[in-house]
Simulated scan of single mutants.
Amino acid sequence: MSANELTLDDLAEWLRRFATIIDENKRYLTDLDSAIGDADHGANMARGTAAVVTTLDQANSIDALLKKTGMTLVSTVGGTAGPLYGTMFMKMGMATGQVMTLTPEEFGKALRAGIEGLIARGKTELEDKTMIDALLPAIDAFDAAIDEGASLHDAVESAQEASAAGRDATIPMVARKGRASYLGERSAGHLDPGAASATYLWDALTDVVKA
């Protein structure tokens, strides 16, 4: 990886690292989900991301990698997380084209397309206490940093920080979407598990760009 691009191999490594972090934290994610959901987010995400890892060597372009990732997540992750994460990666793939590298600007454009697809699929917005609360501030921070001339490394770190802040901001929120919304006011005081897993995308990418 150069300082100014992400290659197919970099993105494959991003997804491998994401799967590893999910597996390392699957019990934590399930504990979060047990408080306000179905107590299966960690197990579901671990199963889905492990399945993704088995497909990574099959892709010969970035769009193929991302689309296959999305389709695999849809078919292997239970609950609402599969369709949402799957939609995000498929929309990312549709936004890239058959290329082998992405500039930071191109990556940001693709990820924003993915997040917008996820929002449309889930009919959710900021402060609904969902993964959007971690994803949208992160891509905003990433794009702002790139626009200001930051390096890829620094832009990813800015996004990582914004994602973590967005995740933590879900604690006092009352859920307006998903299983947690059934709890009403009782959903306040708990960290959203989807927002927690979404931050791992940026933790994984930070590891890749540092390496």
Rank of each mutant, 00 (worst) to 15 (best):
D9Y: 07
Y85G: 04
D23T: 15
A169G: 00
V52W: 03
M45D: 01
K123H: 13
A175Y: 02
T76A: 06
R121K: 13
E161V: 10
D133Y: 11
D40M: 07
A155F: 00
A188C: 08
G37F: 01
L102Q: 02
L32R: 12
D147K: 14
A175W: 00
A95S: 14
N60E: 10
M88R: 11
G70K: 11
T72M: 05
K129Q: 07
V156Q: 01
H41Q: 07
S163F: 00
F89G: 11
R17E: 12
D63Y: 11
A162F: 00
M1H: 09
T206F: 09
K210A: 15
A138I: 01
M71D: 12
A51L: 04
T80F: 09
A50S: 15
M131C: 05
G86F: 00
G194Y: 02
A180W: 00
F142R: 04
G78Q: 13
I119Q: 12
D128C: 06
G108P: 00
A165R: 11
A145L: 02
P172K: 05
A204K: 02
G86S: 06
V77T: 02
P172T: 05
I171K: 13
N4Y: 08
L8N: 08
R16F: 00
I36Q: 07
L66A: 00
R176H: 14
A165M: 03
L66Q: 07
L152K: 02
G166K: 00
G108L: 08
K26R: 15
A51I: 00
M88D: 09
K109E: 11
L15G: 03
A155D: 08
I139R: 08
G37H: 05
T72K: 01
L191S: 09
G79C: 07
K210D: 15
S163D: 06
A50W: 01
L6W: 04
A180V: 02
T54L: 11
D63I: 07
W14E: 02
D147H: 15
D192C: 07
L201M: 14
I36L: 04
L102S: 01
L11I: 13
V52F: 08
D31M: 13
D31K: 13
A196N: 05
P83I: 00
S2L: 14
A50D: 14
K123P: 13
T49A: 12
A164E: 14
T124V: 14
K26F: 06
L152I: 08
H190R: 03
L201S: 11
D133N: 07
A35L: 13
L8I: 01
R112V: 10
K210F: 15
A35S: 13
M71Q: 14
T55S: 13
